[in-house]
Design a protein around this nucleic acid. Structure first.
Lengths: 230, 230
DNA sequence: TTTGGCAAAGTGGCCTGACCAGTTTCGGCA
DNA sequence: TGCCGAAACTGGTCAGGCCACTTTGCCAAA
């Protein structure tokens, strides 16, 4: 069965989501071992290389752990109630930090006199809109938009912090949550919220920009909480 | 050349890092296209499937964008080697960032239920008081105090950010300014402001802690501005 | 000369089949 | 009963091949 048009997304993405769904559904409990690549691939009607690509994606997202010679194991991602925060880099910690920093970045960007930087914000928004409309994943474009705002704040330290926060967000636990939380509806809302932010910055409305960014991040948090609950 | 022991990490990881290093080094500028998979694989002494796995990893991490039928492109997010205006890391930029983050850290620390972390804040304050009385420079103790508060916030991401901000502050320009701004009078004031913060946190008064931290940082800024003018 | 469209070249997407190097398991031997 | 080694199993990697999409550039028509 040597083909399958790439109309949907790429195959490894679909495989990864399928496996992630099985994990979420409890068919593959945390700590359990997945069927071997040789078994699983034909069962999903894909080749082993494609399955491997999907497993690598899941591994990077922290859903799964690959132990050479032994097998692929579902990672225990359950938030331990005993240890609330201290050393665990939970996804909501990143969001909390973003909530402290990014609204003011937006306000500073709105006040900025650097035309080029503000043009970069508008351009990043345009790119993101194009990609969202096209139905692509859009995550990198999202990042670029927020980063452009941080850079437009004129404060390189803030820009660096925001960049690092997005790197954190790409880390295992968080990115898994991100993916779960991004429904088509949420993607559209996301775009609308970004539009408000971009407009406020373009208009030089610092207070409005701050408020819009805050609303946006709160909405993101709500979506992730819902994804966690669902 | 069909093998290569898996002593280091897995091959795709090493390939990904190698490519990421090229991007960071500017050999592959943002927006540029990587050599085709068929060209690049033999150049890195790996097979195409392994290279593909690495590219998928880089794509998930947002470093690269894969456009089917076209090529693999470096995402425009890497810090370009020369950024003219924005990249001057002025000392007041750091202070501005601290002003955004640290007051809320103090508030979170006051609300924290982690007794050990709050004890660490009190202890750091005690050490600082001892050193200030003894007339020492006080910078490390000062840093420890602020860092203890950030850690007591319970959010490791915030703790890391604050730590980095203090590292920035130690950079040449800023540290010279810091030294200038620390008169004996200022040192006493500093200690008093810290005492207010420490007390508010110990008392669990979140709002008061936030306000005290904010006042403290504004006072620091005033002192530095004065030093700059004088 | 300009513009339109179409074909070839190039690129990623995916598959089959195979061998290597670890890990795990289990049966035979002490 | 307990230890140890071999076989079975698993992931790691490679080679080569075909398909579908994108890009490019040539050529013909306006």
């Amino acid at each position: 069965m040597p083909f399958q048009p790439l109309e949907p997304r790429r195959l490894f993405r679909r495989i990864a989501e399928q496996i992630a769904a099985m994990i979420a559904a409890g068919e593959l409990p945390p700590g359990s071992r997945l069927p071997s690549e040789r078994d699983l691939a034909p069962r999903l009607n894909v080749s082993r290389p494609s399955l491997r690509e999907a497993l690598i994606a899941l591994e990077i997202e922290g859903l799964v752990e690959v132990r050479g010679g032994s097998g692929v194991y579902v990672r225990a991602a359950a938030p331990a109630p005993s240890r609330p925060a201290t050393d665990a880099p939970g996804p909501f910690d990143v969001l909390e930090a973003r909530l402290l920093v990014e609204p003011d970045c937006a306000a500073l960007a709105a006040r900025s006199t650097d035309a080029a930087a503000r043009a970069a914000v508008a351009e990043a928004f345009g790119r993101m809109r194009a990609e969202t409309v096209a139905g692509r994943v859009g995550d990198p474009a999202d990042r670029d938009f927020h980063l452009a705002i941080a850079e437009a704040s004129g404060n390189p330290v803030l820009a660096r912090i925001v960049g690092e926060l997005w790197t954190d967000q790409a880390a295992p636990v968080a990115s898994r949550l991100t993916r779960l939380a991004v429904s088509p509806l949420r993607r559209r809302q996301n775009l609308g919220e970004h539009a408000q932010i971009a407009e406020a910055i373009a208009a030089g409305a610092a207070t409005a920009a701050r408020a819009a960014m805050r609303r946006h991040l709160l909405a993101v948090r709500r979506a992730r909480l819902a994804a966690l609950a669902g």
